[in-house]
């Protein structure tokens, strides 16, 4: 399915996660962040870039990994993306939600 974000038509799944990272732009990220009630600062953008790199390398994303990323620590990650930081940061970064097999 598709939806309109920042004036562009983009592919998303039923939960609103983007399914094509190529369509992602900073403007789209800002709009998703607003929906999720997250304010982005300079650090948030660094984390988003790092998350996108992990996705491109097909590395599974975990809280522990974010903590060891060198970009941020876990405490700060929770401050940047309150209430389910991995889920929210993934959505804003335009990558799929971390999932299990069912």
């Amino acid at each position: 399915m598709t939806t309109t974000l920042a004036g562009k038509e983009v592919n998303v799944n039923a939960e609103g996660y983007m399914t094509d990272l190529n369509q992602w732009t900073k403007e789209i990220a800002l709009e998703i962040a607003q929906q999720e009630e997250v304010t982005l600062n300079e650090k948030s953008w660094q984390v988003i870039t790092w998350i996108q790199e992990q996705f491109k390398n097909e590395d599974a994303l975990t809280i522990r990994k974010v903590g060891k990323s060198g970009v941020t620590d876990i405490k700060e990650f929770y401050e940047l993306f309150p209430n389910g930081p991995l889920k929210k940061a993934s959505k804003i970064a335009g990558i799929p939600k971390p999932v299990s097999c069912i």
Partner: peptide
């Protein structure tokens, strides 16, 4: 669970 729920895939989640 560290994930968003017991079931994380849309179809399984709906069915189970």
């Amino acid at each position: 669970t560290p994930l968003s729920g017991a079931f994380t895939k849309p179809v399984a989640s709906k069915q189970l």
